[in-house]
């Protein structure tokens, strides 16, 4: 009998202890939830905790926060939050409430996905297309859009060079306005490239001197995938150029590009619209001259300008 009472007492004790621990656990979850759902902002004294540390880690991964992760919400974290909010079009107040939390979750999910995808893009013809009207840079693989990034393009007074180019230079940490990465283009009439920025708020606008600006985090993702010679097309309205001289193989410049563009419009294949009068352009001119029964000199003379309706 005594033995039975003892067993009963032990059982009661065990059950009580279990129930207590369940309650304790439930209470902890509730407590943590409360803590995580707090609005993070700049306060005096500064807010601190795991949630702030998590925020800093996410912002850092997304490329908005470049300082040490301290778990303390100071002015640097505030600036990073504001920059992020501007990027995702959330009210840029510097406070991390439910909307910003949701945007952070979405961004980090996409970022992880993109990182995973871009880390090992599928095989195929890799090239970049920059749309100056939409202000986007799209990675094409076998002519299919693979990933699109926002970018800034040239101002009205310093337009981005429309045409077909190639990457001829790659370097890191030019610093300043060029951000963390630089990829130079073979534009014959100036130095243009794709680069990062120290003015992320300019992304999505016409702000540059003709270069293509990207967020540092984006250009850093793109950089390892781009090889020397990667083709880059900048598409948009071509400026109308008058051609005042005859052109021949070896010449470069806007006038050559105008001829290449007009040749393409007329259905001939001058190669890349890159302002370089090379073999392909010469061949296209000869084909056009033969098509119209003219002497096949391969030179752009006034007859060709007439047939292409290029003003002089």
């Amino acid at each position: 009998m005594r033995r039975k009472v003892l067993i009963l007492l032990v059982a009661i004790l065990l059950l009580t202890a279990n129930a207590y621990s369940i309650n304790e656990a439930a209470g902890a979850i509730k407590c943590n939830c409360d803590e995580r759902s707090r609005v993070l902002k700049l306060t005096s004294p500064y807010m601190s905790g795991d949630d702030v540390e998590d925020l800093q880690l996410i912002l850092r991964k997304l490329g908005f926060f470049n300082a040490d992760v301290t778990g303390v919400f100071g002015p640097v974290t505030l600036a990073a939050v504001k920059e992020f909010q501007q990027w995702v079009n959330v009210d840029s107040v510097g406070e991390v409430g439910p909307k910003t939390q949701a945007a952070l979750t979405t961004a980090i999910t996409e970022h992880s996905l993109v990182s995973a995808l871009l880390a090992a893009p599928p095989d195929g013809d890799f090239r970049l297309v920059i749309d100056v009207d939409k202000r986007t840079l799209t990675v094409l693989i076998d002519n299919k859009p693979y990933k699109t990034f926002p970018c800034a393009v040239g101002k009205t007074s310093t337009k981005s060079p429309i045409g077909d180019w190639a990457i001829i230079q790659k370097s890191t940490n030019w610093g300043g306005g060029f951000g963390t990465r630089w990829m130079g283009l073979n534009v014959p009439w100036g130095i243009f490239g794709i680069h990062g920025t120290n003015k992320p708020s300019s992304i999505g606008t016409t702000a540059s001197g003709g270069c293509i600006r990207m967020f540092n985090r984006d250009v850093e993702q793109l950089y390892p995938l781009v090889k020397m010679g990667t083709r880059v097309s900048i598409v948009g309205p071509y400026p109308k150029i008058k051609v005042n001289q005859q052109l021949s193989k070896g010449q470069t410049g806007h006038e050559v590009q105008q001829v290449q563009l007009s040749l393409r419009d007329a259905g001939f294949s001058p190669g890349f619209t890159d302002g370089r009068f090379g073999n392909d352009t010469e061949q296209a001119i000869k084909q056009m001259q033969e098509f119209y029964g003219l002497m096949a000199t391969g030179k752009v003379d006034f007859n060709i300008l007439n047939l292409l309706r290029i003003k002089r």
Binding site: Q246, M295, T297, K299, D301, F302, N303, N306, L307
Partner: peptide, 11 residues
């Protein structure tokens, strides 16, 4: 000699 502007001359 290649007449490089014959079309304009006619037009």
């Amino acid at each position: 000699v290649v007449n490089e502007d014959c079309l304009t001359q006619f037009i």
